[in-house]
């Protein structure tokens, strides 16, 4: 008859627990895991790893519009459209968030979903 719990069993228990700890480490790095997409005229022109951004910077996908990118977030900082809804949207910092400058046909978004498949608004 086999034993219930012996040295080997203890070894196995410890090994599994250590494995679970190892799998836990990547999520501690403070990385947001966020990737931003810049979509101009329906085409994805850029993908930015928001974790790799060390210093905030700005760039212009089209004349008159400016996008500011910082660690873990991005936003429209300038646009020549009248309503400036894109700028008013503010910083995007979570998965699935989107801001669009419709007249210029520029959309900025963060890939992924916040556990929803689609938003209604």
């Amino acid at each position: 008859m086999k034993k219930l719990f012996g040295k080997t069993d203890l070894l196995i228990t410890v090994a599994v627990l250590v494995l679970s700890l190892l799998l836990f480490i990547p999520s501690l790095s403070g990385d947001t895991g966020l990737t931003a997409q810049i979509i101009v005229d329906g085409e994805i022109t850029e993908e930015i790893d928001l974790d790799a951004v060390e210093k905030a910077y700005s760039f212009s996908p089209k004349d008159g519009t400016e996008i500011e990118v910082a660690r873990g977030r991005l936003r429209f900082s300038d646009a020549c459209c009248r309503d400036e809804l894109c700028i008013a949207r503010g910083w995007l910092s979570a998965k699935g968030q989107t801001s669009a400058c419709l007249p210029e046909r520029i959309v900025i978004t963060i890939k992924g979903t916040d556990n929803t498949d689609m938003m209604t608004y």
Partner: peptide, 15 residues
């Protein structure tokens, strides 16, 4: 041929 007890087997199966 091994010395893994019931609990060890239970854990391995669960894993």
């Amino acid at each position: 041929k091994h010395s893994i007890g019931y609990i060890g087997i239970g854990i391995i199966c669960a894993v």
